[in-house]
Design a protein around this nucleic acid. Sequence first.
DNA 1: GATGTTTTGTATTGATCGATATAAAATACG
DNA 2: CGTATTTTATATCGATCAATACAAAACATC
Lengths: 207, 207
Amino acid sequence: MNNTKKAGRPKKFDRDEALLKAVEVFWKQGYEGASMKLLTDSMGINSPSLYAEFGDKHRLYLEAIDRYANDDGCAPLVALETEPDIEMAVRAFFEAAIDYSTHHASGARGCFLASCVATSAGHVDGTAEMLREAIEATDTRITARFDVEKARGALPPDFPSSDQAKLLFDLRQGLVFRARAGFSRGQLLADIDKGVAAVMNPAVKSD
Amino acid sequence: MNNTKKAGRPKKFDRDEALLKAVEVFWKQGYEGASMKLLTDSMGINSPSLYAEFGDKHRLYLEAIDRYANDDGCAPLVALETEPDIEMAVRAFFEAAIDYSTHHASGARGCFLASCVATSAGHVDGTAEMLREAIEATDTRITARFDVEKARGALPPDFPSSDQAKLLFDLRQGLVFRARAGFSRGQLLADIDKGVAAVMNPAVKSD
DNA sequence: GATGTTTTGTATTGATCGATATAAAATACG
DNA sequence: CGTATTTTATATCGATCAATACAAAACATC
């Protein structure tokens, strides 16, 4: 019902577009490394408008983390959950991770959570908690997909879903870390086969 | 020969102790998050002495990275190379990583390279290169240890040393990332058995 | 004890930090 | 057109940033 135009001067920016720009800046520079000047310039919003819209730098950061976690950050998860064949799904998970960590439009590399937010977890309020929640949610979603495949018979009944979920997660951490350090897309793609095999063939079966 | 006492007022600080304090501050706060005030206070050196000794903040940071890479950062590697039995060595590698990432005296958590330096790799000169070198050196040293065990017969001839080295490395990335996010030592230790098994039992043999 | 050398402590630099005060500009409604 | 409302743009706030100037202090050597 409240879709009538508001009174007053119209905004010059799109809130979500601006937030995505903020993600890019924080992703490249880290929290303290991203100055408000750099943020306002990149987001195309002048300082007072930014504060009116997002509160302050800290709240903008937390919102950027949340935005990322539901976009690039969970792209591998979506790929895993979308692809019907489970082995192809695991492969798609890796490919999605390599994709956003080496070819992001903004030039930002690696994983925003794994590199930048991990740093702020040491001293910026609220970030360690968000990181912990993201990790646990990812473990849970990967495990769930494996459990579905066990029920379907595509994975053996003794497949240790939770253990392999953590393994898949950790392998991604290695990939995005290497990506942040400058390893090329090609170098990272070369490791996928071994990663898929390790996840699909557990060394220890479930009891 | 040049061990005679220097002229002039003696220094009040030990260079290496001060550098270790700098590592701790950067580890907790990140590069920009570590102010010179915080650094001088923690290191017990006043500002002019610090600049005379270490150049500037950027050079201090690079030196801190190097210092860490040869201390805590390679403790798991040393453990891996020291323990005679290869399976125990892999286990010791994980335990060392969990140890420094959850119980460091300064309260810093996770891995300095994996969290903080990874952030600065996006925008601080020289850090991405140092990160890349550390990764490659680690891969090389782990691979070398596996190759030695293959020659000794403690590992099968078709053991894919390089692949399992990367796997071991990636599993550590997962551990230290979780540690930075606040997971407890106990939670991380619970995953070691599965990690050891995955490393020791490759899904794909070497050709 | 005088001299030269090096480090210390204090005080401060210009620049940049995050965050705002103020007023003009741009809309809707009457 | 006039009024109320909202966002814009400019200009700037005090605080903090990284980095230094300066002189007293503490040593070795003569």
